[in-house]
């Protein structure tokens, strides 16, 4: 019984972080059609800057976290203005080649960013202090309060994202942009401005995920590629561009990984999710919740 509760609690926390980490990535793909391979590096920017400000500059965990989030948004806009915009507007690229060039360019941006992070922060993992100390005992299972808080905050952010998309004019415009950008332009919306805001929203979500991650399991420059791979798996599994699909996929992946880690070996945590991804790509290439 204890084991089941442990697995469920762990799944709740891991799934929440996975979901938050993948939400921005899937929104970006839904609206602009770009699969951003710099995602993990941007998440790590937030983690490391938050750690640096909180502990090295003695700004405290909350102010440090805010600076970390700001750094992720800033880095996202650097990617947007130096890679996405110039390539999207290039006349030398055929439109059918553009997604491939953007895909590769975000990967190159990630590698550059990772190198810079390693140069500045080193490769030794760092961790921000717990937002809240202590443990709570749930049905005989000891759970750090900080981990529970991280799960709750992640879900609060996802809830706020849902409210924003479904109840605000700008959110609805973003949703519409993912369905029919031309239609949206015809009714008078500035697509460029929507893209600008979507990238900002993406940076915000990646930044929050990074700050929470730094407090949960810590971060280092060399985990960027793993974070990208996990988020990429979730987004493809849930259906590219489908936010609800990504949330479901995050929990499926979180559950499979947690069960494997508890019952077989933590070293094999990633394996079942990747096997499932291969099966899904064979049987349902659009993802579990994607449309044709």
């Amino acid at each position: 019984m204890n084991l089941i509760i442990e697995i469920l609690i762990s799944t709740f926390i891991i799934g929440a972080i996975y979901a938050l980490g993948a939400a921005g990535l899937t929104i970006i793909f839904g609206v602009s059609g770009i699969l951003n391979l710099a995602h993990g590096a941007i998440v790590v920017v937030a983690s490391l800057v938050a750690w640096y400000c909180a502990l090295q500059l003695n700004m405290g965990i909350y102010l440090g976290g805010l600076v970390g989030i700001a750094a992720a948004i800033l880095t996202t806009y650097v990617l947007y203005f130096t890679v996405v915009i110039p390539l999207s507007r290039s006349r030398q690229l055929a439109s059918e080649e553009l997604p491939v060039f953007l895909f590769v360019s975000t990967l190159l941006f990630a590698l550059i960013l990772q190198g810079l992070l390693e140069w500045f922060f080193g490769a030794t993992p760092v961790s921000t202090p717990a937002m809240i100390d202590g443990v709570v005992h749930i049905a005989g299972v000891t759970v750090p309060l900080n981990s529970l808080l991280i799960g709750v905050v992640a879900w609060a952010v996802i809830g706020a994202l849902w409210l924003f998309i479904s109840h605000t004019r700008m959110g609805k415009a973003m949703l519409a942009a993912s369905m029919s950008p031309k239609g949206l332009a015809i009714v008078g919306y500035d697509i460029g401005r929507i893209h600008f805001l979507v990238w900002g929203l993406y940076g915000l979500l990646a930044g929050i995920a990074g700050v929470l991650l730094a407090s949960f399991i810590g971060a280092s420059s060399n985990v960027a590629i793993n974070l990208t791979a996990t988020s990429f798996t979730i987004v493809v599994l849930g259906g590219l561009g489908n936010v609800l699909g990504s949330l479901a996929a995050a929990y499926i992946l979180g559950f499979l990984g947690t069960v494997t880690a508890f019952l077989i070996s933590p070293s094999l945590r990633e394996v079942p999710g990747l096997l499932l991804l291969i099966v899904v790509l064979y049987a349902r290439p659009q993802g579990l919740f994607g449309r044709h």
Partner: peptide, 30 residues
């Protein structure tokens, strides 16, 4: 590469161990 040690520590608690004899250098902080 392990990031989440929860399952490992759960196993240690179940084994009722009161000493962790470690051999770690690549990892340490987490």
């Amino acid at each position: 590469d392990t990031t989440d040690f929860t399952p490992i520590y759960s196993r240690i608690k179940k084994a009722d161990a009161n000493v962790i004899m470690a051999a770690v250098a690549h990892v340490g902080v987490k």
